[in-house]
Simulated assay, not measured.
Amino acid sequence: MEKKRTQLVDHNRVFTNVMVWPALIILLLTSLLPIIYVLITSMTDMTLITMNRGGTQWVGFKNYIDAIQDKDFMHSIWVTVKFTLLAVVSETVFGTLLALFLHGSGKPSKLLRTLFLFPMLCPPITITLIWQTMFSNSYGILNQILGVFGVAPVNWLQDINTAFYAVLWVDIWQYAPFVFLLVYVALCQMPQELHEAAALDGANSFQRLRHVTLPYLAKPMTVVILLRLIDTFRLFDKVNVLTKGGPYNSTRTITMYIYQRGYNDLDIGVTSATSILMTLLILLIAFPYIRSSFKQMVQRR
């Protein structure tokens, strides 16, 4: 009997390896090898011209040093960090408040939930083009509304005072429903016994929210915030469509900087170096969560 059990375990182990290794090999070829290639090119003076002529030379960490000393690159980091913090905080607050409101007001209709989720379900480029039309200086609906009240048209996407916040609003409008969805699902899974026990102890609605609901939402909200931090840090499509990084680089994020250095300047070496630096910044953001998750996994074992 013990021999058959051992054979069954060995068979399952072989079957698992057969199913897992092809996926690992594909992941290696599609992820790790491109990263290695980018690391190598980031230490060369490769441009599109030298790549075609075969005149690429090894420069070591020069591209990294030049990027760190580049004021435009450092400014793009500041713009990205500022945008990410404002967007994630706003989306988390709005999405959580909406989820708490709908969950506390009874079971909302499917139509209402679909309307709230509509911005998230649409492709980002579609949402961006819609808002680009609404922000138009000549025929946009926002300026038409302002005109009704006698206010002069605002050049939303070309004014240095409004362009950044216009792009920010589009991102909040699209992804606050993402926070709403995950928080609402977590609220629906929350045991009602927790609220009932708190009510029996004399806790009012605000106290139950503060000491029961919010602590219960801590873990799912941590995941939501991490996902939004990583995704917002890689923002490109909205900036590229709405402002191209302008005016005066006020909306030039890291991804926009990398794109312009690669597409306009054809500088592959510097583009690779700045891409690696951006990846390191994203890993730095995700490191605390990865570390805590790893500790929890070890403790469970």
Rank of each mutant, 00 (worst) to 15 (best):
M1I: 13
R5Y: 10
R5W: 13
Q7E: 14
L8I: 12
D10T: 12
H11I: 08
H11R: 14
N12Y: 02
R13A: 01
T16E: 04
N17Q: 06
N17G: 05
V20K: 00
I25H: 07
I25S: 05
L27R: 05
L29V: 15
L33H: 10
I36W: 13
T41H: 02
T50C: 08
G54H: 08
Q57M: 12
W58C: 11
W58N: 04
V59C: 03
G60N: 08
G60H: 04
F61M: 15
I65M: 04
D66H: 04
I68K: 03
Q69V: 05
D72M: 12
M74F: 12
H75L: 13
T80L: 04
V81R: 05
K82M: 13
K82L: 14
F83C: 06
T84W: 00
L85Y: 06
V88Y: 02
V89Y: 06
S90F: 03
F94Y: 08
G95N: 05
T96N: 06
L98K: 06
L100Q: 02
F101C: 10
L102Y: 06
G104S: 06
K107F: 03
P108G: 00
S109H: 04
L111W: 07
T114F: 13
T114M: 12
P119K: 12
L121K: 06
C122I: 15
C122P: 05
P123D: 12
I125C: 14
I125E: 14
Y139P: 01
G140S: 08
I141Y: 12
Q144G: 11
V148I: 15
F149N: 07
G150M: 04
P153T: 12
N155R: 13
Q158C: 10
D159Q: 06
I160A: 14
N161P: 01
D171T: 08
I172A: 01
Q174A: 06
A176M: 07
V179I: 14
F180G: 00
L182R: 02
V183Q: 02
P191R: 11
E193N: 14
H195C: 10
H195A: 11
E196Q: 15
A199N: 11
F206S: 10
R208L: 06
L209Y: 03
L209N: 00
H211Q: 11
T213H: 06
L217P: 00
L217G: 02
K219V: 10
M221D: 01
T222A: 13
V223H: 04
V223A: 13
V224L: 04
R228V: 07
I230A: 13
I230H: 03
T232F: 01
F236S: 05
V239D: 01
V239G: 03
V241Y: 02
L242C: 05
K244I: 13
G245H: 00
G245A: 09
N249Y: 08
T253G: 03
T253S: 05
I254M: 15
Y259I: 11
Y259H: 14
N264C: 07
I268L: 06
G269P: 03
T274S: 07
S275I: 04
I276A: 09
L277Q: 07
M278H: 01
M278I: 10
A286P: 01
A286T: 09
I290F: 15
I290V: 15
K295L: 15
R300V: 15
